[in-house]
């Protein structure tokens, strides 16, 4: 087990290296853009060249990459191309908390709702309730989150002149209650589709075990239906459930770009979005790689959780 964790952690830097190299090549394939963006669109080739030199963008790509990577190992992700050229790591540190908070809120809500809905749906399979829940979960994964978010901002404003949009952002450390009052809305919007996914997986994997021999035995020895459902059926779905929740957490982190943009929350998603639009490549590289790192760590965590849930799995 420990050997496995160590092996996975050794694989991590390799993945990060390859991913960052790919991303770097994608972003830097046309170096002129970045300098042009800083100059501000004026096509003054002299000034552009000057800026390119200042930013080190006139060096060959491999020199630039290894320069970046060498610093990245020490936690220095370089400086934004845009003035005032703030440190990338600093900007990420400022904002990552908000994105993680939305992610955790969303995954908590969707696990609770999704598991409950999934269990009810499976136990009452083929009833009108199951039918209704199934249609709602398909609808849940079909309706785009930016539309629900838009409706959430628009309709209450028309009906009750109320908007979930806070006049100004308050961080968790400043005022936790006020902060949760802001963060709950993007989390609710994002949890519609993830709870629907979770519910669908719980339902289908429970249906697989609901008719198996050990469940029949459990019933035969007179266990309460509740105990049978939770301990004998639901427990068997945990593996699939953990996989889905892990994958959903990745999706939610990525989806934060939309939620943060709509609800004006200063998180990592919004930072990345702004960086992409302003062609601030160094910043994009840093933020996307931090997202990738979170995603990879979640995957490793999921694999380790497997062994906890199912002792039969050994690595």
């Amino acid at each position: 087990m420990r050997a496995y964790v160590i092996r996975r952690l050794i694989g991590l830097p390799v993945m990060l290296f390859l991913m960052s190299l790919l991303l770097f090549l994608l972003l830097f394939i046309r170096p002129g853009n970045a300098a042009l963006a800083v100059v501000g669109g004026f096509n003054e080739s002299a000034r552009e060249k000057d800026f390119e030199h200042q930013l080190g963008l006139d060096r060959p790509w491999y020199v630039q990459y290894f320069d970046w990577a060498g610093h990245a190992i020490t936690g220095d992700l370089g400086k934004s191309l845009k003035p005032p050229r703030k440190s990338v790591a600093g900007q990420i540190r400022e904002r990552i908390g908000n994105t993680v908070e939305i992610g955790l809120l969303t995954i908590s809500i969707s696990s609770l709702v999704g598991i409950a809905v999934g269990i009810i749906s499976a136990v009452k399979r083929n009833s009108w309730l199951d039918y209704l829940l199934r249609v709602s979960t398909i609808a849940g994964i079909s309706i785009p989150n930016f539309w629900t978010a838009t409706l959430l901002l628009t309709l209450p404003a028309i009906w009750w002149s109320w908007t979930p949009l806070a006049p100004e952002f308050v961080s968790f450390t400043e005022n936790p209650i006020k902060n949760l009052g802001i963060m709950i809305w993007p989390a609710l919007v994002l949890s519609i589709s993830s709870s629907a996914y979770v519910a669908r997986i719980v339902r289908s994997s429970m249906l697989e075990t609901l008719y198996s021999d050990h469940v029949r035995t459990a019933r035969a020895k007179g266990l309460q239906e509740r105990v049978v459902v939770i301990q004998h059926v639901f427990r068997n779905s945990l593996i699939t459930l953990i996989t889905v929740i892990g994958l959903q957490l990745g999706t939610i982190l990525g989806g934060s770009v939309i939620a943060e943009q709509i609800f004006a929350i200063p998180g990592l998603g919004l930072l990345t979005y702004d960086a992409v639009l302003t062609l601030d490549y160094i910043l994009v590289l840093g933020t996307v790689m931090v997202f990738a790192l979170m995603f990879l760590l979640i995957n490793i965590g999921v694999d380790i959780l497997y062994t906890v849930v199912d002792p039969r799995i050994r690595y």
């Binding site: 994608l26 990525g254 770009v257 939309i258 992409v276 997202f291 990738a292």
Partner: peptide, 12 residues
């Protein structure tokens, strides 16, 4: 696959 989907699409 390890890149977050929407962000990667945005960058690409």
């Amino acid at each position: 696959i390890a890149f977050p989907a929407i962000l990667f699409a945005l960058t690409l």
